[in-house]
């Protein structure tokens, strides 16, 4: 029962702040509510006993990526935003309907396929340190190629981001 209460509480926080991200016109509030949403997702991982992932989620997303977002939004200083949302009643209705439709399709498919399975499956409790050991073993054996590729990607991104941020405008420089 406590598990259910904590799940619904966390779920409420995540969904409410996610909705705030897309519905609030001021981008600074969007960024802050996204940070709240990330923290909520970290809490959800914590309740799923994925402690390591939860910590990484906090450090990487809530602690680094979102701080970057907030910093950039603050630097732009967009206080009065013109046309925050797309124009036209038809396009708005269409887009909203599309999103709701996709959600109901996924939810319907899930509820059909999970009618028996669902809650019967209980989470197997494991020794946490051991699971981290297995995780790293997996990372360095089965997924070692992807891991190396990720390293190359990150180096490329560092170079690219610095080049972009330092660029004086390329061939179209004023």
């Amino acid at each position: 029962m406590t598990e259910a209460i904590s799940f619904y509480l966390i779920q409420f926080i995540i969904l409410a702040s996610a909705l705030a991200v897309v519905l609030v016109p001021n981008p600074i509030y969007s960024a802050i509510s996204l940070a709240v949403s990330m923290t909520g997702i970290a809490a959800l991982f914590f309740s799923l006993e994925a402690y390591f992932i939860a910590g990484v989620q906090l450090v990487v997303y809530a602690g680094a990526v979102m701080v970057l977002f907030v910093m950039v939004v603050m630097l732009f200083d967009l206080k009065k935003e013109k046309r925050a949302f797309s124009r036209g009643t038809l396009s708005r209705v269409l887009k909203t309907t599309l999103s709701v439709l996709i959600f109901s399709m996924i939810a319907g498919a899930l509820s059909m396929s999970f009618s028996e399975l669902g809650s019967g499956d209980s989470i197997a409790k494991e020794d946490i340190t051991r699971s981290i050991k297995e995780l790293s073993a997996l990372l360095y054996t089965k997924y070692v190629f992807a891991f190396e590729a990720l390293a190359i990607l990150l180096v490329m991104v560092i170079v690219g981001a610095i080049a972009l941020a330092k660029a004086k405008g390329g061939t179209h420089a004023k």
């Binding site: 970290a42 939860a54 910590g55 989620q57 809530a62």
Partner: peptide, 17 residues
Amino acid sequence: IPLGIIYIFGVSSLAAY
């Protein structure tokens, strides 16, 4: 808390906000 260090780092990384 299991993985105390990771928890502490995660929480204190929120100090930038």
